[in-house]
Amino acid sequence: MMAYMNPGPHYSVNALALSGPSVDLMHQAVPYPSAPRKQRRERTTFTRSQLEELEALFAKTQYPDVYAREEVALKINLPESRVQVWFKNRRAKCRQQRQQQKQQQQPPGGQAKARPAKRKAGTSPRPSTDVCPDPLGISDSYSPPLPGPSGSPTTAVATVSIWSPASESPLPEAQRAGLVASGPSLTSAPYAMTYAPASAFCSSPSAYGSPSSYFSGLDPYLSPMVPQLGGPALSPLSGPSVGPSLAQSPTSLSGQSYGAYSPVDSLEFKDPTGTWKFTYNPMDPLDYKDQSAWKFQIL
């Protein structure tokens, strides 16, 4: 009977010793046993002879290597770790002494450095960015050149030099007046198309007034536009458009034309069986010896 009264063996659950049927240790109110408190290391007290050895090595170098620390530790009968900690504390003490010396050398008012006064946003004049500046400075420094007289040679050079070769001289006033084509001369031969040399188009003023001019072949195509416009036809070669000034309004060009419109200028042929003959000019830059190549039959 006494065997049943004795408590059973101890069981360990999660490293906790349980005594038989008792489960009081598993209750929430019972805390787990805490780790033992780490003991504080005792402070090391250095003797005068030990301090002399350490100070002598510190005077040589503030960062001794492990071999120098072990050698000193053997002399003063201390572990190497204590020597390492002593050098660490000695360097910190040396830095603190240097900072105190710097503070003593500075004057009393030198510690508080005078800061520059901050400028207020409204006091300083700042350039306004509302208006974009002129990058080319046209509004201040540029002045347009004065327009020359209508009959000045410089204007003629600016007008005619675009179309004339570089080897030719500017046309005088008398020749510029001949550039304007007359109405009857352009409409006299509506079906004849003559190819003149390129030099005649640039230099010869008579080429624009003769039936064999460069633009005589364009007349049949330009004249039928007159009834559609409801007024006189516009002429690209009329009046002052080739003269001194090219800047004319469309209203000033509306009254200039080749001449009176005639039914002869239409595109319809009077004789459907007729042929169109292209007159060959020996001055043509295209060297075609066979003139029969310039004739064709309209079917």
Rank of each mutant, 00 (worst) to 15 (best):
E173Y: 07
S34E: 03
Q62R: 06
M26Y: 12
V72R: 14
L25A: 01
Q97R: 10
F215Y: 02
D219M: 12
P220S: 07
S266T: 07
P172T: 06
A156N: 02
V85F: 14
Y4F: 07
R69W: 15
P227Q: 08
S161N: 01
K120E: 03
I76L: 11
P250C: 06
V23S: 03
L25Q: 01
D287T: 09
I138P: 10
E42T: 13
W294E: 00
S152R: 11
P107H: 05
K38N: 05
A17K: 06
S210Q: 04
E168F: 15
G230M: 12
Y288S: 03
F215G: 01
K38G: 11
Y11Q: 00
N14S: 08
S249T: 01
S139M: 05
Q104G: 04
M26V: 08
V226I: 11
T187I: 13
M225Y: 07
L171Y: 02
T123K: 04
G151F: 08
A200W: 15
A56I: 07
P64M: 14
Q103E: 04
P165C: 12
N77F: 05
G231C: 13
S252N: 06
P190S: 08
E53F: 03
S252H: 06
E53M: 10
Q39I: 10
C132V: 09
Q104T: 09
G230C: 13
Q104E: 04
A293M: 11
R90L: 13
Y11L: 06
F269S: 00
Q248H: 07
D134Y: 07
D134A: 01
S252V: 12
T273L: 08
Q106M: 08
S12Y: 15
S19L: 11
P127D: 09
Y208T: 05
L267K: 05
S262I: 13
A189S: 05
P33N: 09
F269P: 00
S223Q: 06
P21T: 10
S204M: 12
Y195Q: 00
R98Q: 06
S188N: 05
S262M: 14
R176V: 05
V66R: 07
P116T: 05
S167F: 12
P205D: 01
G178Q: 05
D284W: 14
P133V: 06
Q111R: 09
K38M: 05
Q291Y: 09
S141V: 02
N6G: 08
E70L: 09
K270D: 05
V83H: 15
S34Q: 04
R91A: 15
P240T: 07
A233C: 06
T45S: 13
L246A: 03
S257L: 12
A59N: 09
T279I: 14
D290N: 15
R126T: 00
Q100P: 09
V264S: 02
Y67G: 03
R82P: 12
S22H: 12
S216K: 12
D219K: 14
S49K: 06
A192Y: 12
P153K: 13
